[in-house]
Structure formats: C-alpha cells, structure tokens
C-alpha cells in the first residue's frame, strides 16, 4: 500500500511538472537559483524567530497559485515527511525551559518558540522544494544543473535515473504485489524474501542496462551522451531571480511584520 501511495505521489508531481503556466515556462536555472536563495534566507534566521518568517510564505504561495499546483496536495506531502524534524525539535521545550512573553501577559517556554520556529522553517523549505519539482520538469532541472556547472557524467546519471524510475518502480511494484498476495501476516514479508527480491531486481536491472547499452551503440554512442541546447535565459527569467532575491533580502533584513504591526497600531491609535 505504502509503495503504491509513494508511487502515485511521484507520478502526480511528475505530471504537474509538465503543465504550461507562467511559472512552468521560467528557465529551470532561474527557479533552482531562486529556490536555493529562498531556502538559505529562511534557515539563516536564528532559532527563536517566527514572525519574521511569515512574509516568506509569499514565495511558495505565489509559485503554487501561479503554477496552478493544488495546495492540499503539497501540504499533505509536507506533513508526510515531517517526522524527523518534529522528532528532533520536540525536545526543545524539554531542554530549553526559559520563560518568555510572546505577547503581553502570555508566557511560554522558550523551547516551544524555537520548536515552532523549526516547524515554520520546515514548512517553508519543504514546500519550496516540492513546488520546484512540481513546476519544473526533472529533465529541465537536470539541464539547469548541467549549465550551472555540475559534471556531465553526474547529470547523465540523473537523467537515466529519471527515465527508468517509473519503469523500475512499476517492476518493483509488481513483485511486491506478488509477494503480498501470497504472504500472510508477517510471513513472506521478511528479510530473506526481501533479499531475494532485491537480488532479482538487481540482476534484471543489469540485464536491462545491457540491452540499453546495445540500443545506444546501435545509434552511434561513443561514450558521450550528447545534448542540444534548447533553453536560453530570457529577460523574464532574470527579472524573476532579481525580484525574488530582493524580496528575500528585504524580508531577511527588515522586520516586516513588526513594521506592519506598528503601522496598524499607529493608524488605530
């Protein structure tokens, strides 16, 4: 069951990434760089910071809305991968019992504040990563990485991995289905069976690689996976990176919520 859920989740992200929206049309490099800037800006906040992180939600919200990505789907995936961060962060309230006032008269332990800060950072960084792949095709990201200077051999690995990911997941899923159909309770799903499944899959993979190699040779492969340049950075890409960068810098160095709050209180009083 879990296998199939994970498989369909990847499939859905993958299909989303081939949509055609303003966000999808941006150059992959621009999106990769903007997302990295975003992540660095978010995690650079100190451990007790929460409020100043809020303006950063604008980035994932905009990308998600303009890229026409279902918000619920992304939110569910964020929750699904949260256990480790929660597990580690939950100890903060235990080990950091100092009391602070988060509003006049409201006292909580500092550990809860830093824990909440971890959760907010987690939601921001993970949703940004998911939105990157939901709005940029994997081959697009790979081509972007190549242009950003990663070794050709590594990038060709990523591309092969992507190409055969769905083929092999389906193959593995068929084997798992066959195993589970004839397993009862814990019997059948043990380590020994698993080892045989992985061993068989490995050998099939090697045989497949041999056939692929044959097909590559038949079309003149001589050790280099060639590619043809297709993306060119347009002014809109540069504007996007620049705007995103400025926004992140603004939110990082200026306490926006404080200022908005003061403004509102000034107006009210």
């Amino acid at each position: 069951m879990r296998f199939e859920a994970a498989y369909s989740g990847i499939g859905r992200l993958d299909r989303l990434s081939y949509r055609d929206t303003v966000v999808h049309r941006l150059d992959p490099r621009a999106k990769v760089i903007a997302t990295l800037l975003f992540v660095v800006a978010v995690v650079s906040f100190p451990r007790y910071e929460i409020l100043s992180l809020f303006p950063f939600f604008l980035f994932p919200v905009l990308i998600g809305a303009l890229g026409d990505i279902p918000a619920g789907f992304i939110a569910k995936k964020v929750v699904a991968v949260s256990p480790f961060a929660v597990f580690v962060g939950i100890f903060n309230p235990l080990f950091d019992p100092g009391v602070v006032a988060i509003a006049p008269g409201v006292l909580v332990s500092a550990g809860w504040v830093s824990f909440a800060s971890i959760l907010v950072k987690f939601a921001l960084t993970i949703s940004a990563a998911l939105l990157l792949i939901a709005t940029t095709s994997f081959p697009g990201i790979c081509r972007g990485l190549r242009r950003l200077g990663l070794p050709a051999l590594f990038v060709s690995q990523l591309l092969f991995l992507y190409r055969y990911l769905f083929v092999l997941m389906e193959e593995a899923m068929r084997v798992v289905r066959a195993r589970d159909m004839r397993s009862f309770g814990k019997r059948g799903a043990g380590t020994l069976v698993f080892v045989r499944i992985v061993g068989t899959l490995f050998l099939r993979t090697v045989e497949r690689a041999e056939r692929i190699y044959g097909a590559m040779l038949a079309r003149g492969f001589r050790g280099e996976v060639p590619s043809i340049r297709r993306e060119t950075l347009r002014p809109s890409d540069a504007v996007f990176v620049l705007a995103a960068g400025c926004f992140f810098a603004l939110c990082r160095f200026v306490p926006v919520p404080q200022m908005v709050g003061r403004l509102v209180r000034g107006l009210a009083g």
């Binding site: 591309l159 190409r163 055969y164 097909a215 038949a218 492969f221």
Partner: peptide
C-alpha cells in the same frame, strides 16, 4: 538501423526529442 523489441530499452533519453536527436547528434 535496428529497432529493438522493448521500446523502454530503445527509448533511454528523458524526452522524446532528446531520444530522437541522440542518433543524429552522434
């Protein structure tokens, strides 16, 4: 030119365009 039996083995590039371009580029 040989077309192998299983298209999943024959089509090894990440997009259709890249795959068809593989031979001519080589």
């Amino acid at each position: 030119g040989v077309v192998f039996q299983n298209p999943d083995d024959q089509l090894f590039m990440p997009t259709v365009f890249d795959d068809v371009a593989f031979g001519p580029l080589n």
